[in-house]
Design a protein around this nucleic acid. Sequence first.
DNA 1: AGATGACCGAAATGGTTTTCTGGTCATTAT
DNA 2: ATAATGACCAGAAAACCATTTCGGTCATCT
Lengths: 189, 189
Amino acid sequence: MDRRQEIIEAAAKSFTLFGYKATTMEQVAKIANVGKGTIYTFFANKEILFQEIAMSLVREMKAEADAVLDVSASFMDNAHHALMKMLQFREKHLLFAKLIEEEKELRTPAVKQVLIRIESEILSYMATLIQRRIDKGEIRDCDAELVSYLLLKAYLAFVVDWHELHGDMIPEEKILNLFKETIFRGLVL
Amino acid sequence: MDRRQEIIEAAAKSFTLFGYKATTMEQVAKIANVGKGTIYTFFANKEILFQEIAMSLVREMKAEADAVLDVSASFMDNAHHALMKMLQFREKHLLFAKLIEEEKELRTPAVKQVLIRIESEILSYMATLIQRRIDKGEIRDCDAELVSYLLLKAYLAFVVDWHELHGDMIPEEKILNLFKETIFRGLVL
DNA sequence: AGATGACCGAAATGGTTTTCTGGTCATTAT
DNA sequence: ATAATGACCAGAAAACCATTTCGGTCATCT
């Protein structure tokens, strides 16, 4: 198997297990069965290697979100399912969960940057979907970027923040119902 | 002047200047012109003194929010103005701003708790106002607690988070317009 | 030409000593 | 008698420094 891929997989495994900061390049080299120097023939430094892995994480998440999209379904249902799928991915995927934890506890700057980058990828992904529905005339002609931001923040608030603050989770149906009566009702023509 | 009030004002001044952690009880005693022991005849400990001051901060903020309320205005206008006023208060009031900074940088647990408490006070204040409008039949019969949470999080996202992430501020009118077309449109009957 | 690991400086870690600070309480002042 | 005070204490935090660790390089080896 090609060395580059071995290294990526070894690094991903180590980041998942120990986080970004606690992963050493020597560790990665050992798992990948290469010399430490070899890593640097493929990746400029630890951070670049990390970013590459993070971006493949994004691709994976987008793919899962795409999988629940249904062109014949309403904007609301698609938005809801895609957002829920992405938020579940955040918690379910071990690397993603580890990074979120590391950002909260350790404040590792490289991790913070990567999470910001991921959020911005999600936002532009959502904006594309929204724009498509606007063009189809299904929803009001709004600023897709702002609406993406509103939807993501609203879902994060109810799915993630609420749980962290109150300890209990709001049933998905209740969330959908609330947004149906507020945000989505306003958007749909 | 009564010693209790002197102490509160001295402590408020010191918390504003140096934050909670960096304020020492000796410092407060000096500013208030009392012996350190005297503080403990009025307040059980540093944290209780702090909470007392934080709660008067909340009262002040509610008063400012109340001042912009207009019973004859629409729910949307009232909600918008009250929320904007409270978010401005967050940044304008030196003690409040200092606490937010300390929570972000130092993670002082006592400060975190107080900020959570303040948020919960804001939420129940908002829930009361919303419930009043529901009873008047002006807006849909929704869960006032959930809607408060949605509104607060949405405003925080656009006024505070957006600014922290992008560096620029969204014009107030643009924010109002977005919410008018989404959240509020769904709520108003 | 590509891979490697010994090597380097900078940064992190950990253990020890010193300083600081919240809270108490015997003493003092009123 | 009651209220105020500041010296005092134990535990927490800071400062210090010796030692280790780690990202990245490069001379050497395959």
